[in-house]
């Protein structure tokens, strides 16, 4: 079964926190409110939709889904 990975660009992140609100299983936030990517490597299949949601709602285009 094909899996996806998440590419998160910390330099582009401005702390909008949209990913953390939509996909807390995949993103946490640090003390200043910037995102922390919680998964390394393949995204569990059941979270793939949430990963895409996080990417599609980032105002800064800081999250990319690699198919």
């Amino acid at each position: 079964m094909p899996t996806v990975k998440i590419k998160y660009d910390r330099d582009a992140c401005q702390g909008h926190n949209r990913c953390y609100m939509l996909a807390p299983e995949l993103f946490d936030t640090d003390d200043e409110g910037y995102a922390i990517l919680l998964v390394e490597g393949d995204v569990p299949a059941e979270l793939e939709e949430k990963a895409r949601l996080a990417a599609d709602n980032c105002p800064e285009f800081a999250i990319e889904i690699i198919d």
Binding site: Q14, N17, G33, L53, D56, N57, P59
Partner: peptide
């Protein structure tokens, strides 16, 4: 709406500090 990269809180380094 599922895809919503709105800019209500601005973009770039001046993103609204009070957005949350």
């Amino acid at each position: 709406r599922q895809r919503n990269r709105h800019t209500a809180f601005g973009l770039g380094i001046h993103r609204c500090v009070g957005s949350n």
